[in-house]
């Protein structure tokens, strides 16, 4: 694989990654948006393989496949008009966003151009995976164990937040959100004092009116 072929492949993958990344935010169908993000990840994975980080590239295929499947489930569940049957208009402050996006690209690009990084060839390209293994089992063992603890915390947190009912019955029965101003009951979230309701939800949240105390009871 001579250098020119690598450059051509890199160009194709880079353009594809950026184009799919842009498509994510402009398509109407949420399933198409999620799987164009997956396509963007697959192209970045391919670039990592071209960068001789072979294990990371192929592992990204695997990891992002799972992550995008889960994301597709949540996109379809929590986005209005999930299949894009009507054109999608869920955008606010578009100009500000474009300006900030361009500025950040220019900023990071400037860093890339300004920094004079002296390129060093990889010492032992054959042993990169073995070196990573020794690193993880050796001096970076602490990283692995901390990651383990973080993952346990993530699992417990995710289950606590999302499971409808746990060992002690439904998650929202009996629990009443604390008042924002301590001691002042009217500032308890979920109590619609002004009756102004959430912007986009279609009917009132749980029991409106001042009777905040048994708020969770009728869930």
């Amino acid at each position: 694989m001579t250098g020119t072929w690598v450059d051509i492949a890199f160009g194709v993958f880079a353009v594809a990654a950026a184009w799919f990344g842009w498509r994510v935010f402009v398509t109407d169908s949420m399933v198409r948006a999620t799987f164009s993000l997956l396509a963007s990840f697959l192209n970045v994975g391919a670039i990592l393989v071209l960068l001789l980080a072979e294990y990371l590239g192929v592992a990204m295929f695997f990891m992002m496949g799972v992550e995008m499947t889960v994301m597709a489930i949540y996109m379809v569940a929590f986005m209005m008009n999930p299949a894009g049957l009507n054109p999608m208009q869920m955008v606010h402050q578009p100009r500000v966003a474009v300006v900030v996006g361009v500025l950040s690209t220019a900023g990071f690009g400037a860093v890339a151009l300004a920094a004079d990084l002296d390129t060093v060839a990889i010492v032992d390209p054959d042993g990169t995976i073995r070196a990573l293994g020794h690193e993880l089992m050796g001096s970076s063992m602490l990283v692995m164990q901390v990651v383990g603890v973080t993952l346990v915390a993530t699992m417990v947190g995710a289950v606590v937040l999302s499971a409808a009912s746990g060992r002690f019955g439904p998650a929202d029965v009996g629990s009443v959100p604390p008042a924002i101003v301590p001691g002042d009951d009217t500032t308890r979230p979920g109590v619609d004092v002004g009756g102004d309701g959430g912007g986009h939800d279609h009917d009132h949240g749980h029991g409106g009116g001042a009777h905040g105390h048994d708020d969770g009871g009728d869930a």
């Binding site: 209005m80 008009n81 049957l85 009507n86 999608m88 409808a164 009912s165 439904p170």
Partner: peptide, 28 residues
């Protein structure tokens, strides 16, 4: 937009309405 829909969830896109309004399931 010429496909029968209006707004985000309304209308009859491609001749059939969308499943609306949301209903609370058994898990809230």
């Amino acid at each position: 937009h010429g496909q029968g829909g209006e707004g985000m969830m309304g209308g009859v896109p491609w001749g059939r309405p969308m499943a609306m309004p949301p209903v609370e399931g058994r898990d809230g």
